[in-house]
Every structure is written in structure tokens, then in C-alpha cells.
Design a protein around this nucleic acid. Structure first.
Lengths: 336, 336
DNA sequence: ATGAAAGCGCTAACAC
DNA sequence: GTGTTAGCGCTTTCAT
């Protein structure tokens, strides 16, 4: 920048003013500075600007994994909103391991962003409670989060309950849950959705065979595929499948096709997340729409408030809020 | 940091040394400093460190869109490699519009990274040529890139040629191309793949009906779905489909199922990218494996060299290289 | 309309 | 083993 200033015969300050489109620079000077800038191929050093100005123009999104439709679609939604506000979104993944999550959040990488959205998978409230943040943070997802943070969550229990009820009230008697938990007393995604599944059974007075609860570590197509295969091989009868994610449901559909079972005639299938891909599966997959857009909108709204408050010392930071978005069914061909 | 130093009764330098695990600090002092750090909840300011040290510990990946399996899987592969090298990957999307691409690359956001991988969709070599970079950059994809940059590309023409040949030599006579181009004289992805498709016809002496070339702007499932519907409605007969991406192929499969056409008996289908999802479609989708892992490995290798050269003034920057990775078929149920 | 001085938080280099 | 000095490149404040 000093080079540019010298070359153009002005001060660094004037160059700075030109770059940031600030008033108080004569048209002539402005032009000369701009010419010099492009002649020298100068680019601002964002690190320096950030150090000085305290803002980066970037919002961070920290997710366990990018290569999963759910997070990819979430990232897309958030990116749209963030860009509308003149910032840009950058995505980092943690690999879904607790240490790396904590590190990503605490290690100060946050400071690189004006605001951060975190979707944790493993870390728990106690760990989070230790952390001191200066950067505005909004949490998203089902992990418990200290009450000192904004938190946007979907209605996992309610969504699962609706899905299971639908299967049970349209003729399925033995509904398997893929990725479910025998012990659902933890507050993570699989346990919450399993609770909804159990609730539906209780409400409808239907006995639940624990053999229909198929645990699995992951919730990708492979997991869904294996779960159905395993169920079939162990001779457990079932006429409905509630998969914890659309991805797992996709694998389940594939396995059912291999078994020559017709969906939805022999077995009904429903997923969770209502991803874009559901429309294109064969058969088209029914799913729980967890309120994806509403969540993204709410996250952006909260973040905007906090960022504004952080930038403007006058404004007091708003009290942390927990928002629960309502879920509903998106019924397609895989259910009756 | 100064606060910590004062509180612990040492100098800022000693705090810095402790934080960075540098030798020359007595165990006692180290402990005291660490205690003070956690007591005060201190976190390093990365912006300042970056400004001073000139490195960020982050590698950037700039893609048109995150919410597309191809880019998501690419990001995952790169993230694995980058993390193995002790850095972390951050992903930014441009939305695939030329201006935003250029801005993302030029505006100096690059300076936030030790190295950057760019997958451009629209910008052309001339624009890129204008730019001056200090950050090491590796380009990926089919857009022409000035010879001053490293570039890793897949064999689009060869892959498309193999795919088309396979369909034409296993009984299909009228192979439609979804997303193809009537005029394929531009060097972008659709044109290159269309060229391979045409080559295969020429080599096998099969006449090509231009009606089988279905243009489309995007290459997602919706595009594939619409293309097949359109083809069918306009009464164009076809017994094979080469979709420019797996995503488009997914839409095509869905449309064929709606039309009660059996795949592969009535119509063979092949995609491109060999994404993870191909294994779980009904029927399982044959695809062109463009050498995804080889591309990622090569990109990381090039980047590593350049980053090393940039950090170490002694090393001269290596000459820019263009690498073309070879493609091969991954045949599954959607072809004979 | 333009410039000079000071400092953001950190670390490399050297002194003690 | 620890402290001092200087400066990375920018922007805020105040002076001209």
C-alpha cells in the first residue's frame, strides 16, 4: 500500500480511502490511485485490515462433515442468506470427533470470522461451558448447549413421532427403525428420534419389538443398506422402515430392491431431512421435513443481531434464545 | 496477551513462547503462564499472528457450489489430505458466476490462506492472466488456465468417449446425451464431454442424430429428469443415455421409471463422476470414474511443493505443471 | 481534500 | 531463561 502511495504521490491514507470508497477524495486523485493500484497489481492485506478493523467480512460454518447432503444443503441455505447481507460464508469440517470440534471452536479460529454457526456432533455442554468467546456464535443441532448461547434446533422427537405414526396408521404393524437406540437417554440425534418412534407406539397402543430397533454408528446409505440386510437375514419380519436420515433411507430402498420387496406395498419407507434427492429416488422417498429453511432463516437472524451488537458497543448483546422449529411430513411414493 | 503477561508477571514474549511450545522456558514459568491463560480465557488473535508470521494454517478451496455431490466429495478428499499435513481446509463457494469467481480469487481473500485450490466454472484464462498472486494456487477443472499456474484436470473427452463407446458396443444405437452441446467448440465441461461422445460415434461409424443432443444449463437431477421427459414427449426414439453428471443421470433414471422403461433392457444409462451415490440408486448407476482420488492427491502434492517454496525463500518456485488424470469406466446395473 | 502519528496483537532478532 | 525493541500493513484520529 505504501508502494502504491509513493508511486501515486499521495499518502497511504488516501489510498486506503480510495480502496474503501470513502468520500473526501477528489475524482482526479481517486483515478490516479486506482490506476496505480492496477498497475502494481496491489491487493489489500486482509490480515492487516482485520487486525485493525476487527472485522473480516466472513461468517464461518463449522460442521462435522461437508460430504453429507444434509450439511451441504444447510451450507447452501446459509450461504445464500449470508451473501445477501454482504458477507460470505466459509465452511470448515471437524470430522465429527469431539476433540477436533472443540479445537475448531476454541482454538481461536473463530476470531477469523465476524460470526460463526456451529453444528456440533459430539461435544457436550460442559465442554462448551468452559469456552470464552468474543465472536458471536449460534449453535444448531440437537446437542445440549449451555444456556449462554443461541441455539436453533429441529423438533427431532416430534418429527420422528409423526413419521412413525404415519406408518403405523397406514397399515404397517412392524416398523423397523434404522439407526435407532435401545437406550435413548442421551440427547443426541439418534436417541431423540428414537424417542419419537417409541412415543408413537405408546400413543397408538402398539407393542414394540426391540428387534426392530437396528442400531448403527453412521447414518449414510451404507448403514441403511446393511441394516435392512441384517434385519432380513436374521429373519425379523417388518413391513415398515423409519430411517433416521434420508441417506440411510436411500440405502434401505436399495436393499429392499435387492430383496425384491415392493415399496410401499410390502414395506413402507420414510426418511428424515427431506433433502433434495428424495424427489428423484425410485420410489420417491417420503420424509420428515424438519423445517430446513426456517432453521437457516432463524440462524441468520440471530447471528445478524449478535454481529450488530458486537460491532456496536452501544447495543447490549441480546439474551440467548433457544428456537425449536416445527417439523412436518413430506409424503411421497414410498409410503401409502 | 499483554494481560496474561502482566498477570503472570512475565513478558509477552514468554507468553508467546509458551503458547507456541518453543523451548527456552522453564517448566515453572510455563505452568504459571498456562494457568493464567486458562484463568483469563485468553485466545490468540490469529489475525495478528497471521500479519506477523505470514501464514494462516489454512488451505482454501473455492468452488462454484458446495451443495453438489461432486464438489462435496472433492472437498472431503482434499480435507483429508490437507489435515494429514497439519493444516485445515476451508471451503468457499462462488455460486458459479464469473464475476464472483474472479472476485473470490482476486480480491485478496486468498491472502487469508497458505494455499488455495480453485475450481472455476466461468472465468477464462484472459481474466486470470491479469491477476498477480502471492499465495500458491492450484487450479482444478476443465476451464483453460494461463500456463503460469498449476492445473489438474480430468480426461473429459476420453471419459465421455469410453462411456459412449460402451453403450454403442453393447447394443444401443441411439444414445442421447443429456447436457450436451450442439456447438462444442468452447473448452468447458459440457463441450468437452460432448466431443468425446461425438468421437465415439465417428470411430464406430455410427451416424449421430442431433436430436439426441439435449442441451441444458445445469446438470442436476432436475435437468436430467426434464431432458428425458422432453425427449420422450417430442417422440425422439432412444435406447441409451449418456448423462454429463451422475446427478443428471439420477434424474434420468427417475424419468425412465416414470415412463415404465426398463433400465438397462430398454434404455442403458451411464453417468459421469462416479460419486458415492451411484451404488445406491435403483438400478445401480454405471459411471465414468474420472480419477477423483488421483486428482485430489495430485492437487495436494502440487500445493505442498508451492507452499514449501513460498515459505522458504531459498527454494525457487517450481515450474507450473498441467496434469491430466486418466478416466475409466465403473460399470454397474444401468448398463449391459 | 489530504497527511502524520499512533497502534491493533503478535513474533523475529537480539540483548541481557 | 527471560526481556526489549521493532515492525508486519492497515485504519482511526486529529491536524493541516
Amino acid at each position: 500500500m505504501i508502494d502504491v502511495a509513493r508511486e501515486a504521490g499521495v499518502s497511504a491514507m488516501t489510498v486506503s480511502n480510495v480502496i474503501n470508497g470513502r468520500p473526501g477524495v477528489s475524482a482526479e486523485t481517486r483515478l490516479r490511485v486506482l490506476a496505480t493500484i492496477s498497475k502494481l497489481g496491489y491487493q489489500v492485506n486482509l490480515a492487516a485490515r482485520h487486525l485493525r478493523a476487527g472485522r473480516t467480512g466472513a461468517v464461518g460454518l463449522i460442521v462435522p462433515d461437508i460430504d453429507r447432503p444434509y450439511y451441504a444443503q444447510l451450507a447452501s441455505r446459509l450461504a445464500n442468506g449470508v451473501e445477501k447481507r454482504g458477507l460470505h460464508l466459509v465452511v470448515e469440517r471437524t470430522g465429527g470427533d469431539a476433540e477436533r470440534e472443540l479445537e475448531a471452536i476454541s482454538f481461536g479460529r473463530l476470531r477469523m470470522y465476524d460470526g460463526v454457526v456451529v453444528s456440533p456432533l459430539r461435544v457436550d455442554a460442559a465442554d462448551l461451558d468452559q469456552l470464552r468467546f468474543e465472536t458471536p456464535v449460534v449453535f444448531i443441532g440437537e446437542r445440549p448447549v449451555p444456556k449462554t448461547f443461541d441455539h436453533v434446533m429441529m423438533d427431532n422427537v416430534g418429527g420422528a413421532r409423526q413419521a412413525t405414526r404415519h406408518l403405523l396408521t397406514t397399515g404397517s404393524r412392524r416398523v423397523a427403525i434404522i439407526g435407532g437406540r435401545h437406550d435413548d437417554h442421551v440427547d443426541d440425534m439418534p436417541s431423540l428420534r428414537t424417542r419419537g418412534y417409541r412415543q408413537a407406539h405408546v400413543e397408538l397402543g402398539i407393542d414394540l419389538d426391540e428387534e426392530l430397533v437396528v442400531e448403527s454408528e453412521s447414518f449414510d446409505p451404507t448403514a441403511g443398506f446393511r441394516a435392512v440386510k441384517r434385519l432380513h437375514e436374521s429373519g425379523v419380519a417388518f413391513d415398515g422402515v423409519f430411517a433416521l436420515t434420508d441417506a440411510a433411507a436411500m440405502g434401505a430402498l436399495r436393499a429392499l430392491a435387492d430383496l425384491r420387496l415392493d415399496v410401499p406395498r410390502d414395506v413402507q419407507v420414510i426418511g428424515f431431512d427431506n433433502g433434495k434427492e428424495t424427489e428423484f429416488l425410485v420410489p420417491r422417498l417420503s420424509s420428515v421435513e424438519p423445517g430446513n429453511q426456517a432453521m437457516a432463516d432463524r440462524v441468520l437472524e440471530l447471528l445478524e443481531q449478535r454481529v450488530a451488537a458486537a460491532g456496536d458497543g452501544a447495543k447490549r448483546a441480546p439474551d440467548p434464545v433457544t428456537t425449536i422449529v416445527t417439523a412436518q411430513l413430506a409424503l411421497r411414493e414410498s409410503t401409502r
